[in-house]
Simulated assay, not measured.
Amino acid sequence: MTKLATISMGLLMGALLAGCGSVERLARVGHAPELSPIADPTRDPDYRPVSMPMPAPQDSRQLVANSLWRPGSRTFLRDQRAAAVGDLITVLVAIKDTAQLSNSSERSRGNTENMGLPRLMGLDASYARLLPSGIDPTKLVEANSANTSNGDGKIQRNEAVTMRIAATVNQVLPNGNLVVGGRQQVRVNHEMRDLTVAGIIRPQDIASDNTVQHDRLAEARIAYGGRGTISDVQQPRYGQQLLDAILPF
């Protein structure tokens, strides 16, 4: 395959990949993004039950029939907090992240080497025959090297995300921890906003109003993004993304 054919094949593949995303955009020209249907998250092809390290099981004594306490209760009244698969819980997300890093480095090194063989096992008398004329045996090797490196780096970031999102208990782990996940979609005109949250929480961290702070979620996955006419304009063109990925310079 010639070089021209290879380049043409690469451009064709890039165009096909770009077309996959363009078909969806062309299909909704003049229409707002469609809302996703409400569905069981455990039936999603990408759903995978969470498996975490568990403590050794402990024996629990059976409660007598006339006990004032029932399994899972924390008060005499019914516990309204999420505890079983299918229960709802509100996750409070309040992220205010600030990071500022600054690094500077400087390195310099110089080296000089000289080596000669004025005498070697009595062979100095034969240097004239062994070596080309004009070579000084005392200065056979001479090397110089210098190296200088300077580097500066700076990162300054400020992020703030505040939202409330209802999640569903998808799984109860053997130690009682709850695997929760939720998704929320908000459409304003032709712009869609997607909010997703997932993680593992302890029942003890659930407040009395059935809410939990986002920093109580282990393996937290929180996403806030959008799609629509405004988001499309903010995205680099497919050709530009392709060139950014394959160009080595």
Rank of each mutant, 00 (worst) to 15 (best):
S60L: 13
S60C: 10
R61T: 14
Q62M: 11
Q62C: 05
L63P: 07
V64S: 10
V64E: 13
V64D: 15
V64R: 05
A65W: 06
S67H: 06
L68R: 09
L68I: 11
W69K: 04
R70M: 07
P71C: 00
G72W: 07
G72N: 04
G72K: 00
S73Y: 08
S73T: 07
S73C: 01
R74V: 10
R74Y: 11
T75N: 11
F76G: 11
F76K: 02
L77E: 15
L77W: 09
L77Y: 06
L77R: 05
L77V: 10
R78P: 12
R78T: 12
D79G: 08
D79K: 07
Q80H: 13
A82I: 00
A83Y: 10
V85N: 09
G86F: 03
D87S: 05
D87L: 00
L88G: 13
L88K: 11
T90R: 03
T90W: 00
T90E: 13
V91F: 06
V91N: 01
L92S: 11
L92N: 14
V93Q: 02
A94I: 01
A94Q: 11
I95T: 11
I95E: 12
K96F: 01
K96E: 14
K96V: 07
D97S: 08
T98C: 03
T98E: 14
A99K: 05
A99Y: 00
Q100Y: 04
L101Y: 04
L101R: 04
L101T: 08
S102D: 14
N103M: 10
N103G: 09
S104A: 09
S104Q: 10
S105K: 00
S105N: 06
S105T: 07
S105Q: 09
E106M: 01
R107S: 14
R107C: 01
R107L: 07
S108K: 00
S108A: 08
